[in-house]
Amino acid sequence: MEFCPTCGNMLQFELPNMGKSSRFFCPTCPYVSYLENRVKIKRKQHLVKKELEPIISDDDMKNAAQTEATCPNCGFGKAAFIQIQLRSADEPASTFYKCMNEDCRQNWRED
């Protein structure tokens, strides 16, 4: 969406017609902006994903209580868990689990 630099109204688009290139024009004043037919991208910006910090660290899980919960990754029957209130007070707490199997150590959560 483009706006007229002189009066501030929204510019309208006109398709190319009879050899004229496409353009933006203002319906209230004589402002016209012609568009080039070919647009070149001179530089591409590569996006880098930001590293996410875990909500619960391994130190938090060392002191956590253990329960009988089945790991969805390996099926092991014991897991450490911590409950944290992430949403409003009238919603239930979120439970974070960590598998106690030394080969797995999978993290998962239940809301």
Rank of each mutant, 00 (worst) to 15 (best):
L15W: 02
Q83P: 00
P27S: 11
A93G: 02
E53T: 07
L35N: 07
N107D: 05
F25M: 06
T70N: 08
R105F: 00
E68G: 03
L11N: 06
M61V: 14
I84Q: 15
Y97C: 07
I84N: 13
K50G: 07
D59F: 14
Y97A: 12
M1A: 11
N17P: 11
Q83S: 15
E2Y: 02
I41E: 01
E2G: 02
S57C: 04
K44W: 02
C71M: 10
M61H: 06
A80W: 02
N17S: 07
V39R: 13
I56E: 07
S33T: 08
N101D: 12
F13I: 05
P16K: 02
D111V: 03
C74Y: 10
F76V: 02
E2M: 03
Q12M: 08
T67I: 08
I82H: 08
C104W: 04
K44G: 01
E14D: 08
P5N: 07
N63R: 14
P30W: 14
S57D: 11
M10N: 02
C71V: 03
E91I: 14
A65Y: 06
L15Q: 12
M1T: 06
L52I: 13
R23T: 01
I84R: 15
P72G: 12
E91F: 12
C29R: 01
R87A: 03
R87L: 10
Q85I: 09
N37K: 14
C99R: 05
I82V: 14
K98V: 06
A69E: 09
G75H: 08
D58K: 15
A80Q: 09
E51H: 07
T70P: 01
C99M: 10
N107I: 05
L15A: 12
N17F: 08
S22G: 13
S33L: 11
E102R: 12
E110V: 10
P5L: 08
S22K: 06
D111C: 01
H46E: 11
I84L: 15
P5W: 04
L15F: 03
T28R: 15
P5F: 06
T28Y: 13
K20R: 08
R23N: 03
N101W: 12
N17M: 05
A80M: 03
T95Q: 10
S22R: 03
K49P: 00
F96K: 06
I84H: 14
A80D: 11
T70E: 09
K50H: 11
E36Y: 04
Y97S: 06
S94N: 10
C4L: 05
N107P: 00
K42Q: 02
C74I: 09
T95W: 07
K42L: 00
S57Q: 13
E102A: 08
S88R: 13
Q83A: 15
I56T: 10
Y31F: 15
K78A: 09
N17R: 15
P92E: 09
T6F: 11
L11Y: 04
N9R: 13
L86F: 04
A64W: 05
S21N: 07
D111P: 13
L35W: 01
R23G: 00
G8C: 02
Y34G: 02
A69C: 01
N101T: 10
S21K: 09
Q83V: 08
K20F: 06
H46T: 09
S94L: 12
L35Q: 11
Q66S: 12
A80S: 15
P16E: 00
S57Y: 10
Y97W: 04
G75V: 06
A65W: 03
F24Q: 09
E68Y: 06
G77I: 11
S88L: 09
R87I: 00
Y31A: 00
C29H: 03
M61C: 13
